[in-house]
């Protein structure tokens, strides 16, 4: 059997210039259930498909609020995400403590990017097996960032990562022009519909398997931002209803059949 000699650690290049451990880590992201993020001029949403590993277990946490002004959605190893989210929480609190300001998103994303990069260049370390979408609002407005195990980070208008996320991305690309001026409700709707595209045929969005996280600029003027709000369980019902209702007429798309939904590990 063929054995790859260049994938035992993350510090050795293959002759083709690849670092296999990092690529394998990216595969872990693709195994995770899909998460979608979209940013408008006023809001950002994170939408996630939660899976339960087995009937008896609870559903995995997919969207985590980090600070008042931002949250993350994860695809891949949930435990790796927890480590990163703890780190981000610490950094966010530290920024509040030392400067009295919410940490700029660009800054916190660069920090986890640098962390992840370190584990691709230090012997004995393992890259993070998780991809993140970081969404929130800071002084410069709403932002959505994508984070990959390689340490790659980039700002996005809309993004989907995880299993079968291509379908969600296709939806996002098709509706790209509508996002910038979308209202809060419209943005959530787009998020849920994009997520729906990625479902396998035998699945549908329910209050059990969908999570939504929203942040935005505040409308009421007293405060500048609308705190990160996580919709889970029963709270998702009205959002789902609104989204699916609007989608009923145009159900022309056919989803690709094939592999069953993957489960987070």
């Amino acid at each position: 059997m063929f054995r790859n000699n260049y994938d035992n650690d993350s510090v050795t290049f293959s002759p083709q210039g690849r670092i296999f451990q990092v690529e394998y880590a990216s595969e872990a992201v693709k195994q995770g259930s899909v998460v979608v993020g979209i940013a408008s001029k006023t809001h950002t949403v994170l939408v996630a498909l939660k899976r339960n590993a087995e009937e008896l277990s609870s559903y995995q946490k997919k969207v985590i609020g980090i600070d008042e002004h931002f949250g993350i959605a994860l695809a891949g190893l949930a435990s790796d995400a927890r480590v990163l989210s703890n780190f981000m929480k610490q950094q966010a609190l530290a920024s509040k403590m030392t400067y009295g300001r919410p940490i700029p998103l660009e800054r916190i994303v660069a920090q986890i990017g640098d962390r992840a990069q370190t584990s691709t260049q230090v012997y004995g370390k393992r890259p993070y097996g998780v991809g993140l979408l970081i969404a929130g609002v800071d002084e410069t407005g709403p932002h959505l960032f994508e984070f990959q195990p390689s340490g790659m980070t980039q700002e996005m208008i809309a993004c989907a990562i995880g299993a079968r996320s291509q379908m969600a991305r296709t939806y996002l690309e098709r509706h790209l022009d509508e996002f910038a001026d979308a209202s809060r409700d419209e943005l959530i709707k787009h998020g849920l519909l994009a997520l729906k595209e990625s479902l396998s045929q035998d699945k549908e969005l329910t209050v059990d398997n969908a999570s939504v996280g929203v942040t935005g600029l505040a409308q009421d003027g007293k405060r500048k931002i609308e705190s990160f709000k996580l919709y889970d369980g029963g709270e998702v019902a009205p959002l789902l209803e609104a989204a699916l209702e609007s989608a009923e007429p145009a159900s022309g798309d056919t989803t690709v059949e094939g592999e069953s939904m993957e489960v987070d590990t």
Partner: peptide, 8 residues
């Protein structure tokens, strides 16, 4: 509280 206003 949620933020510097102490709301919540």
């Amino acid at each position: 509280g949620d933020d510097e206003t102490g709301e919540g």
